[in-house]
Amino acid sequence: MFNGLFRKVRGNKTGSGEIAKQRLKFALIYDKLEISDDTLRNLHRDMVEVISRYFEIDQAAFRLDIHRSDDFSSLVVNTPILSAKRGSPD
């Protein structure tokens, strides 16, 4: 009982358990941002295919990268366009 009282008085926010929870939130988000080479290769192939329906592109120069910084990750796609395709893609 005294233990509980003591904890209430002291407040529980400073304990290492609270730190653990905060760190976990970030770690779990971070883990989910990681992408394997296979997935990246598949994405690359699919994107080239989709974009090629609308544009004539230089497939060899197509670049797909993941950029990471401390606060966010981004998917960066870079492709030279040779020309737009006219009419409906289908």
């Binding site: 760190r23 970030f26 770690a27 971070y30 990471r68 401390d70």
Partner: peptide, 11 residues
């Protein structure tokens, strides 16, 4: 990485 507290430095 989490045990060492370096989990947000991984590139």
């Amino acid at each position: 990485d989490v045990v060492m507290g370096l989990e947000n430095r991984i590139i």
